[in-house]
Design a protein around this nucleic acid. Structure first.
Lengths: 351, 351
DNA sequence: TTGCGTTGAACAAACGATTGTCCTATGTTA
DNA sequence: TAACATAGGACAATCGTTTGTTCAACGCAA
């Protein structure tokens, strides 16, 4: 059993509060040098650490954050988590990780659990548009930040990238390469990234005077499996697309597999563009052309935003939107593998 | 502010303890049906959830576990974590994730923090041989399980695979393919997997009457970067190896890159074998021949072992050792990509 | 000697929940 | 009617810290 204040107090023949004050370096404490020395020796000797639970109860602060994501097995979210931990850990916070697998129910139950545990704040990267769980979190006045996906435009503290722009860049790139039939492996209509990237795709087509073709858009979700199925559907069309813009790198990876199984060459038979620039993207053969976003910074910036709210005790509405950048690799341009190490800077920050 | 027992008690005109008993379905509680109904209605109406902190203080149980790993960005550890969460979450536990980046100091400070927080138990997958931190954890009588790596032979509850056997299978496979100069991208001598896999490699060579060549062994660590460097060193030898056994899939991935940059064909110029069978392994081109271990099950089994200790309150010494299986893919045998979906079963469990 | 300012700590009330024990009305039995 | 169960809750201690307040003893000046 770890040592308690009371036990130390008994050994030092002082009151527990005195030990507490010495341990916490209370500046308002007046104490005889000898007593202080005795107590400090005892603290060192016993390696006393205050019971975090009791401390949390009294201080109403647990120094625990939580990250809620669909699946840490997805490299995007793993990197995101690292960003959060790297941002929060040096300040003494520990971070809980909760996977939802895209289930609203699981998201909800995780958040209720986190709330009951009195975590100091939550980072949400698994939310839907108009998400009831987000409304619940708001109503509980529990500090939170939305990451990558938003829920209700402009209502929440948010860190992410300009999805519309990113998707536009990606699609534009394909247009400029001469593609006329460009397919889209789309995210869900219930998720902001799905909607915005689709919109960016359509906007780029419109810019170029290309007519949108509903048959060239297939909802793939965000998994490799979904990407493979959707890609197979599109590529089996009588008049198949010559290029695909996938809502996500993992989706694009699925498309890679599907194209390979169908005996199609990349990029000669079908060019593929992804989104996020996860590490895997540059390791594919050919490299995956994709839209780079600073994933790790999403996490650390979100952590900062969250900690800021926790410290000030005030709900923030700051939105940090990074500028996405196109990274051209071999999956669209033969032999054009880009050098690694790009960076993004915040495009703009409102409020 | 979330509602407290005291507030509910005031509203229901009963004592807080009564509310508590109703909320917890205390079987020994005798109460008038009307009162019970009134309280239950109140509980539902206010969506009362007991303050987890206060509860933890009283019950001396937090329902929080922690997973300590080098880096969740590594797919192996991401999958491991999922296994743990999937095993623990249904029982009401939340899981903290701590990354050490292989630093003993960070590992130590994380564990001290976790201990002060009174987490119910810890899963350690970042330990070294003869790790002082493990000894400290033991001395604190904090429930723990070592995963994948062990520290002091047979002293700790452990879940992992038979590294010696796995490495032997891998190397044997290369021998059987006719390779005579087989290099090893070795893990660290301070980590059990590093030592055992190296030993397995040497054992397989010995079995085949092949003399070990110190120049064919290069310490690569466990990162892709390290694997690339070590591979480049070996492949630049005047008399380079025709095959490489990498301590880890990520190391092998690094070797892939290095070989490619040197203009070597895989497997014609150099065959490569990895270890762990992370999802990435089957997506490489050619697919990576590797030693399959049930990563997700490592996590869930370890969680079970940990929870068992927590429930019984007894330190366990059970060791769960899974049987590794060789998965042959294109990186050793041209065009031989294995079907996905292998399974391992526990080879044996001691004590 | 009285009074006052300091010094050096002790006291005690939280923070919210859990749980063993005690108390007070009823109703029942002899 | 006295004695006694029993039902239905109230009481209070406790988990380990933190922190505002109080208090005894001492030194010093008047």
């Amino acid at each position: 059993m770890p040592v308690t204040l009371k036990e130390l107090a008994a050994r030092a023949r002082v009151h527990p509060s005195t030990i507490s004050r010495v341990a916490n370096h209370d500046p308002s404490l007046r104490i005889a040098p000898a007593t202080r020395a005795r107590i400090e020796a005892l603290l060192r000797e016993t390696e006393y650490r205050p019971n975090g639970i009791a401390r949390g109860l009294k201080l109403r602060q647990t120094f625990v954050l939580a990250v809620v994501i669909p699946d840490v097995t997805n490299p995007f979210f793993a990197a995101l988590f690292r960003g959060v931990e790297d941002g929060a850990s040096p300040l003494g916070y520990n971070v809980l990780l909760c996977n939802t697998d895209g289930s609203p129910e699981r998201q909800r139950s995780h958040l209720q659990s986190l709330h009951a545990r009195r975590v100091d704040g939550v980072l949400l990267a698994s939310t839907f548009l108009n998400d009831p769980t987000v409304r619940w979190v708001r109503s509980q006045r529990m500090p939170y930040v939305l990451v990558n996906r938003f829920s209700d435009e402009g209502h929440d503290p948010f860190v992410g990238s300009d999805d519309l722009l990113g998707a536009r860049l990606a699609t534009q790139h394909l247009v400029e390469l001469g593609h006329r039939r460009i397919g889209h492996l789309a995210g869900k209509a219930t998720v902001s990234t799905g909607v915005l990237r689709r919109r960016g795709y359509l906007a780029a087509l419109a810019d170029s005077g290309l007519p949108p073709d509903p048959r060239l858009m297939a909802e793939s979700g965000y998994s490799e499996e979904g990407g493979a199925q959707a890609a197979e559907r599109l590529l089996s069309l009588p008049d198949p697309p010559t290029a695909l813009f996938a809502v996500t790198d993992m989706t694009a990876v699925g498309a890679f597999g599907a194209a390979r199984r169908m005996g199609l060459r990349i990029p000669e038979d079908v060019a593929i563009v992804g989104y996020n620039d996860i590490p895997l993207a540059s390791r594919l053969l050919p490299g995956l052309t994709t839209v780079h976003v600073p994933i790790h910074e999403f996490g650390s910036a979100a952590a900062r935003l969250l900690l800021e709210q926790i410290e000030t005790g005030a709900q923030s509405r700051r939105r940090l939107v990074f500028n996405p950048e196109l990274v051209v690799r071999g999956s669209t341009v033969p032999g054009a593998d880009a050098p690694a190490g790009r960076r993004s800077v915040p495009a703009f920050a409102t409020e």
